[in-house]
Amino acid sequence: MDSVNDTANQADTADGGRLVIAGEELGSRLIMGTGGAPSMAVLREALIASGTGLTTVAMRRVDPSARGSVLDVLRECGIRVLPNTAGCFTAGEAVLTAKLAREALGTSWVKLEVIADERTLLPDPIELVEAAEQLVGDGFTVLPYTSDDPVLARRLEQIGCAAVMPLGSPIGSGLGIRNPHNIELIVEGAGVPVILDAGLGTASDAALAMELGCDAVLLATAVTRAQSPARMAAAMRHAVEGGRLARLAGRIPMRRYAQASSPFEGIGTGG
């Protein structure tokens, strides 16, 4: 092992190591979505390149003509499945979808998503809180997709959610993190893992999320709709690791003027 990796491992250990959600350790701080991949083969390559240990899937009415199952891909890759409630507009729809997912997939973990409208796909905070309360009360491990509102994030944690997942910008927009200050406020106030979910466009966005102090990143479109999904997945993997290390290392403060990195003493022309 080379010295760079030694340093990385020391830094990871110094911070308590791996991502832990609801008492369970996950092998990667990159959580993947599956939407948007042009084929199961492309999805499989991207998931492997991402190094992810947890990946989210949607629940939909069965289609007898469907070929290949995303569940088969996850099983073959040894990736844990995280069902979501994508497409639900009310607390009632989301709760029923979560219960169906628990029955179908044998997991009580759920990425809770309750959206307000199809144009923005922004979370509906009222329905989200209602659904989170019901699901936590029913024994689910709830990971809510939320807006980047520090107050709402705090309320979701108080309800008993196992993590909070603020958006960087609207789902699939690729606009990155539009309000880094709010993400920092959420991180400062959170006692559960903060997972930046939605809106990331490229590797630097994922690195920024980690530099801001997020514990993990969840993304799909940035990889699945990239020109080379597997290559972008690898880029995201490295960005998450790099951003995490930078956070742990402690960046230098920004300065208005230069600060010489070389000594002035001993310059030959200095007289």
């Binding site: 939407g35 949607a58 069965v62 469907a66 979501n84 997912a101 029955e103």
Partner: peptide
């Protein structure tokens, strides 16, 4: 529950939803 599928009979105008996991989210 799957264990109750055989024993649960349907009635006229019932609404049944049958879901599975797909790519998405």
């Amino acid at each position: 529950r799957r264990s109750a599928w055989d024993a649960t009979t349907l009635n006229e105008a019932d609404r049944l939803e049958v879901l599975t996991a797909v790519q998405g989210g």
